[in-house]
Design a binder for these strands. Structure first.
Lengths: 185, 185
DNA sequence: GTCTATATACAGATAGAC
DNA sequence: GTCTATCTGTATATAGAC
């Protein structure tokens, strides 16, 4: 299942994790190699340049998004509720890839920005049939973006502003109710 | 009105602008000095270190937030509607300061993260009396965060996902209606 | 496939002239 | 208050041994 060299994935994992935890400034080849337990030369065997490392991360995001789209459509909780809840998860593969890619996007990486835009478009396409109108769709997407943004800000100072537990359930219920194409209740 | 040395403000403006447009990686002392039209030595006369430059930016944010809190409470359109609409503006002083500070926060700058948290808390305090319950308040704040996040992603590739014109009006009406403490309509 | 050593460029910061 | 010149550390990348 994992035909690509294992070390390659380990290096990419380390790069992604540093981007999420320390941001783009900290995500140097040196720091990545150290965190992955290889030398800089070893890293550069797998990724010939920093750009290659960044491209690989973006490609990983695309793959995870495609898988997510398949999952989201069959959520028993309902598409909108599942989508909002998934936006607040903190440590799954997709979330890490999104936040890491957004770090690149926010440092002027056009391909990263493009990948995030395409991700948003994919999600909108899935959510559209489950929302009342364009404004409701905008609202759902923006709440999701807001949750990601707040999760992404932290670093070592995790934000406590993101609702959890009962507060999250109430938020999800509210969003689902507002967005639902059927009766407003 | 501008007692502090003019050059100092020009340098800080340049630093902020580069943070917004190119991200933290591009916001070097060299690039900032060049954009401000001074030498690196000249810059370092006004800001003794990069840290001093970053602190000044965060302080600027605090001042602008305090002014914004005063404005927002007297918005004729309604506090919630004004707040959401203001979140999508692209080029006013406060918005640039917020996005620039969030670039710092996303590169592991604890003081920047703290300033953004305090800003959020100030806004929540103003909005709370104008929202139905905690979930409604969360929703308003997250929509605002989402709008900022999307405005912030761009760089030279501005995102077209942020609603404008009639779509924005519809979103604001929807959020205001959901959030309103009075009848749900 | 992974390493060490090194080349080159640029970052932040200091010293001191003007 | 602003400049040039310079120091020191670190970033990306290459060369070539193992």
């Amino acid at each position: 299942m994992s035909r690509p060299p294992r070390a390659r994935e380990i290096v990419l994992d380390a790069f992604e994790r540093i981007l999420v935890e320390d941001g783009a400034r900290g995500a140097t080849l040196d720091a990545t190699a150290r965190a992955a337990g290889v030398s800089k030369g070893g890293l550069l065997y797998h990724f010939a340049s920093k750009d290659a490392l960044e491209s690989a991360l973006i490609e990983r995001l695309r793959v995870l998004v495609a898988a997510d789209i398949a999952t989201i459509e069959s959520a028993p909780e309902g598409v909108v509720a599942y989508f909002v809840r998934a936006s607040v998860m903190e440590d799954d593969d997709l979330d890490r890839a999104i936040i890491a890619t957004s770090r690149l996007a926010q440092n002027g990486h056009p391909a990263a920005t493009r990948a995030l835009l395409e991700m948003r478009e994919s999600w909108e396409a899935v959510l559209r049939p489950h929302t009342r109108d364009a404004a409701a769709l905008d609202l759902v997407m923006l709440v999701s973006d807001g949750l990601y943004f707040n999760n992404a800000l932290g670093g070592d100072t995790p934000l406590t502003v993101v609702p959890k537990g009962a507060a999250l359930d109430a938020l999800i219920a509210l969003v689902a109710q507002v967005a639902a194409p059927e009766a407003a209740d």
